[in-house]
């Protein structure tokens, strides 16, 4: 049978793409499967069991680390989202003005610097402050996380704002709304999907962070990722697979939510 000439193919490309997707998902699949292993090994399959999930859930170190991760992420993502929303309002739909590129540069700076560099720089400064003030609480982690969450929260909020017609705010002002009323009644409701998307991105980014947390944390302030990093040095049991699987499921859930929120058009 004669087939028409397909301009959209290249020899071998589909095969490499198939390899790419397989390579991306196979290791994760193996990791998840062994979380359900009945045995102690992460190499030998000994039957299906949920025992490692039970073990992980009842491990107080895991519970504390997970809770700490969530607390930090909630605080950091919330502060970052509020700050990023304000910054987006000040840097969008204004034309260019003196200082605008400076603001862009500062707001995006955390994306440009290798994480390890920021991490040790924070270690230097925070260790000194810890000595001076005696305070060793979660504040340092929250501050550090907020800083690198800001560019991630900023991106979707700014994109949303840029697609909004500034005539809407003009119309509100024309209809006797004060600047605050116009913001509250018009800008904010329309900006909400962008703000939600920004928050979710920031939340995932904070939750996932390993490097900066590892260097900034005080003694006993393990988050879930740094706890896992510590565990990987020892003989690993499927417990860590179980933790990773739950973590993974949670992240994927947020990312899926992010996709749906971000897709909703104005």
């Amino acid at each position: 049978m004669a087939r028409s000439f397909d301009v959209k193919t290249q020899p071998g490309f589909a095969l490499i793409a198939a390899f790419c997707f397989a390579a991306l998902y196979l290791p994760i699949a193996v990791l998840v499967i062994y979380a359900f292993n009945a045995g102690e090994s992460i190499a030998v399959w000994e039957g299906f069991s949920l025992r490692w999930f039970v073990t992980a859930m009842s491990n107080t170190a895991v519970q504390e680390a997970a809770l700490r991760s969530v607390v930090i992420a909630v605080f950091a993502a919330s502060i970052a989202t509020v700050a990023a929303t304000m910054a987006a309002l000040a840097t969008t739909r204004q034309g260019t003005y003196p200082g605008l590129s400076f603001k862009y540069a500062v707001l995006n700076q955390p994306l440009m610097i290798p994480e390890i560099v920021t991490a040790v720089a924070l270690l230097i400064v925070f260790s000194r402050i810890k000595v001076w003030t005696g305070y060793t609480g979660l504040g340092y982690l929250i501050a550090a996380h907020t800083a690198f969450c800001i560019p991630f929260a900023y991106l979707p909020i700014r994109a949303r704002l840029e697609s909004m017609d500034s005539a809407l705010e003009a119309a509100a002002a024309d209809l006797y709304a004060s600047p605050w009323q116009a913001f509250r009644r018009i800008t904010l409701p329309l900006l909400k999907p962008g703000i939600m998307a920004g928050f979710m991105l920031a939340f995932v980014i904070s939750l996932d962070d390993v490097v900066i947390t590892e260097f900034v944390k005080s003694g006993g302030q393990e988050t879930l990722p740094t706890y896992m990093l510590g565990q990987l040095r020892r003989v690993v049991t499927p417990e860590i697979n179980a933790i990773a699987t739950v973590f993974l499921a949670f992240s994927v859930l947020i990312v899926i939510m992010f996709f749906f929120v971000n897709r909703r058009k104005a």
């Binding site: 700050a83 304000m86 500062v106 700076q109 924070l122 501050a143 907020t146 800083a147 690198f148 800001i150």
Partner: peptide, 13 residues
């Protein structure tokens, strides 16, 4: 409006 974000990034990055 931009100062909180700028300040946080400046202090903690």
């Amino acid at each position: 409006l931009s100062s909180p974000a700028l300040l946080i990034v400046f202090v903690a990055a």
